[in-house]
Design a protein around this nucleic acid. Structure first.
Lengths: 120, 120
DNA sequence: GCAGATTATTTCGTAGGCGTATTAAATTCT
DNA sequence: AGAATTTAATACGCCTACGAAATAATCTGC
């Protein structure tokens, strides 16, 4: 229960962040991914591994093909990698990458920075 | 210069918001619009009117067809309306709607709510 | 009044995402 | 071992969005 902000501040923050991402001043690269892709990416980098397609789909409340395709996109940008689970070879383990970690870190910094500049 | 949060908190906040939107527990309806559409929507509701296609495109750093199409989508959801500018009939004035105002308000409340629940 | 500029939209061909159903591989159950 | 389950990926037809270029309407400057 720690961060208090007004609805106006919340919207301003969201808008500022979205604007920077669209303008491609945020983390470099893809200015127009969807909320789903963002959610998949952040799940992988914020939640404790291991991450399977099944698990991510369940967490997001979407079908598995949606996750597979999101991973295709994120993989093409080298923000995540896939590896077969050697213990249960049906599973795919989704792994973080250096590039992805950097991307997420920059995204976090962007939000922090925009929050700092909010009017009261 | 008022809101201070850590990178971890920032990412958690972003992730929580994205997750709720994806799960469609956010503002009712459309779970998967893009950053661009979000940015167009928030520009219209947070910046001072009047809003033209040209102005929005310049602000976002995208081409005008992108804005026209985003307005088509948002218009189909009744989140914005378009009206011809009677003073200079080349211009289109983008206007807010009751439904859009409600949507944006709920989105703000969602962010506030998620921020409240952040660990320190 | 007319040439040129400006605004928004439409068109065109391309790329990517969607949901549902199906497939392929691997594991579990009996 | 063989049937049923589970996992991820793929196929399919549809829809939406993209960028670049063309179009239609309107305004400005001379």
């Amino acid at each position: 229960m720690s961060i208090v902000l007004s609805p106006q501040q919340a919207l301003r923050l969201l808008s500022d962040v979205a604007l920077d991402v669209v303008r491609d001043k945020g983390p470099q690269g893809h200015p127009d991914f969807t909320m789903r892709q963002l959610s998949v990416l952040l799940t992988i980098y914020l939640e404790r591994p291991p991450h399977t397609v099944r698990g991510i789909a369940a967490r997001l409340g979407v079908t598995k093909p949606v996750v597979t395709r999101a991973l295709d996109s994120l993989g093409a940008l080298e923000l995540v990698t896939r590896r077969r689970d050697e213990v249960d070879r049906r599973n795919v383990i989704v792994q973080r990458t250096v590039k992805g970690a950097l991307f997420v870190e920059q995204l976090g910094d962007l939000v922090v920075d925009k929050a700092k500049g909010l009017a009261p």
